[in-house]
Design a protein around this nucleic acid. Structure first.
Lengths: 102, 102
DNA sequence: GCAATAAGTTACCTAAAAGTTATATAGGTT
DNA sequence: AACCTATATAACTTTTAGGTAACTTATTGC
């Protein structure tokens, strides 16, 4: 009865961190180059950015495309699974907007 | 242009932790006694539970009702602001359910 | 032949999050 | 009079998150 497992746990394990929703949100616009994406996320450090996109990739929420050029060129894009979060991400953003107007 | 502030940041500051969405989710059913609520959240420690509900209360997402009896009796309930997260919380849960079936 | 470039990686360190254990409370039940 | 109860709080430790700075690469442009 009590302590029943709820799928929300799974969701939180996948995207329940400070940075992941922000990175995903900024990918909603489409394919973005690494450096651009990083700059869109306020105050994320080099290390956390890399770590975050690596985990999102591992979990199949984004894809990473590497171009074998110098200097390096890398692009990130939402996968289908990642895109399935669109409505939720936009709702979270909209909710924050409401809060700030109250 | 870049590093533009997005309201999602606000949202993440309010509920972007491991436990907060889970606590809020289990309050969707209505007013719940402290001990019951705690047991509904899998594996949350005593300390994190207290800390989490304190912050949610401070941010006006839940209310705390204390009954002056011994042993203590405390009930938690969503505020209007907390209830405004219902659709999002249910979406997050539903998303986790989809993931586990793939 | 030297600097600048984009996208990292590595090593090191600090700060924040979280867990663990012990303790308080005061009335009712044994 | 000792014990149980529910809801915490406090002190302490461990774990994880996060930050900083230095380094790598190979080509282009000076």
């Amino acid at each position: 009865m009590i302590k029943d497992f709820c799928p929300l746990n799974l969701t939180m394990n996948l995207i329940g961190t400070k940075w992941k929703p922000l990175v995903l949100f900024h990918l909603l616009d489409g394919c973005v180059r690494s450096g651009i994406l990083k700059k869109k996320v306020p105050d994320i450090s080099n290390k956390m950015f890399t770590q975050t996109v690596r985990e999102l990739e591992k979990d199949g929420l984004i894809s990473r495309k590497v171009f074998p050029v110098v200097p390096p060129k890398v692009e990130y894009e939402l996968t289908d699974r990642g895109r399935s979060l669109e409505q939720i991400l936009r709702s979270l953003d909209a909710w924050g907007k409401e809060m700030s107007s109250d």
